[in-house]
């Protein structure tokens, strides 16, 4: 199977479980192939967990789920050193982060300290514990979920931390007929459990390497940079997109091109990805330091900005 066919097969596989959301599936694959992490921001019960689960299932990768609560400690994620009486030595018991795909549920429910331990692991792809480093196995991808509706007792992630996520997605409610289908297939089994793995971990890594070879034309890079620059100059934003953000957009665009079976990027790739890759990296200008969330607003601002930038012809 060529890479294009493989990717299509995975999409179809997941689509058997997540009904009517091809876009979300495509984007999560993009995040995977771009070696990025995914932040799903949505109300509970729309299939965030199922998405992560089925992605992991189709890939023949290890999958761990961490439910974030206010009493979760960093060691609950990273792992602990335990004194082994037989060996008279400390032994490192790896935490759930040592998996290929990690689902971090309700990430904003835990304390900033715990959050940062996860985020460090995400950016470094390794764990430092007691002066030892433990590399994480590639592919490594964190799918974090966050519930925007609740604020009681939550610790929203700061922008600098959000930057670690490649993209922020919403799943949204399914269309009525799709929802009906979900209800109809009342299976006792978790739907994701039925999926068969299509790729091994090493094949995923190979695909990730292919992303780097996707060609991006010079004028397209210019286009991408002018989008980024416009966020820095915009009156609406108090914080524009960083260089890391530009890099992320470029990588995501390449991954999207690969997912769509192309070996080169198009302006469409950049344009389509800009809102979901950039919207969580910016700070909407506010008065008196009042932090305000509104996913939609940030996305809309990015979209408006992109609409002012001429596409290279």
């Amino acid at each position: 199977m060529t890479s294009t066919e493989t990717i299509r097969a995975i999409q179809e596989n997941i689509a058997r479980v997540i009904k009517g959301k091809p876009h979300v599936i495509e984007m999560s694959l993009v995040a995977l192939l771009a070696r990025g992490h995914l932040l799903l921001e949505d109300v509970p019960g729309v299939g965030k967990t199922t998405l992560a689960h089925s992605l992991a299932r189709s890939l023949d990768c290890s999958f761990k789920r961490i439910q974030f609560t206010s009493d979760l400690l960093p060691s609950d994620i990273v792992g602990v050193s335990i004194f082994n009486r037989q060996k008279q030595a400390f032994e490192f018991i790896p935490g759930p982060i040592f998996a290929n795909i990690v689902l971090a549920d309700e990430i904003n429910r835990t304390t900033p300290k715990t959050q940062s331990s996860l985020l460090e692991a995400m950016s470094e792809a390794q764990i430092s514990f007691d002066n030892k480093t433990y590399p994480l196995n590639p592919p490594f991808m964190v799918i974090a979920t966050q519930n925007p509706a609740e604020y009681h007792g939550t610790f929203p992630l700061p922008e600098s931390q959000l930057d670690r996520f490649l993209m922020r997605l919403r799943i949204g409610y399914p269309a009525p007929e799709e929802e009906k289908k979900v209800l109809e297939r009342a299976s006792s089994l978790h739907p994701a459990e039925e999926l068969l793995p299509l790729l091994t971990a090493s094949e995923v890594v190979q695909l990730q390497d292919q992303v780097d070879k996707v060609f991006m034309e010079e004028s397209l890079t210019e286009y991408l940079l002018s989008i980024v620059r416009s966020t820095r100059q915009s009156e609406l934003l108090s914080l524009g997109v960083s260089t890391r953000g530009a890099l992320a957009l470029s990588r995501a665009a390449k991954a999207l091109a690969l997912v769509r079976g192309r070996s080169y990027c198009l302006p469409d790739d950049v344009k389509e990805l800009a809102p979901i890759v950039l919207s969580h990296r910016i700070m909407v200008a506010r008065q008196a330091g009042l932090h305000q969330r509104s996913f939609e607003q940030a996305e809309r601002i990015i979209r408006d900005l992109v609409d002012t930038i001429p596409v290279p012809v």
Binding site: L266, P267, D268, V270, K271, E272, V306, D307, T308, I309, P310, V311
Partner: peptide, 9 residues
């Protein structure tokens, strides 16, 4: 009409 429309769009 807009110059900001990408080809596939």
């Amino acid at each position: 009409r807009s110059a900001a429309i990408a080809p596939l769009e």
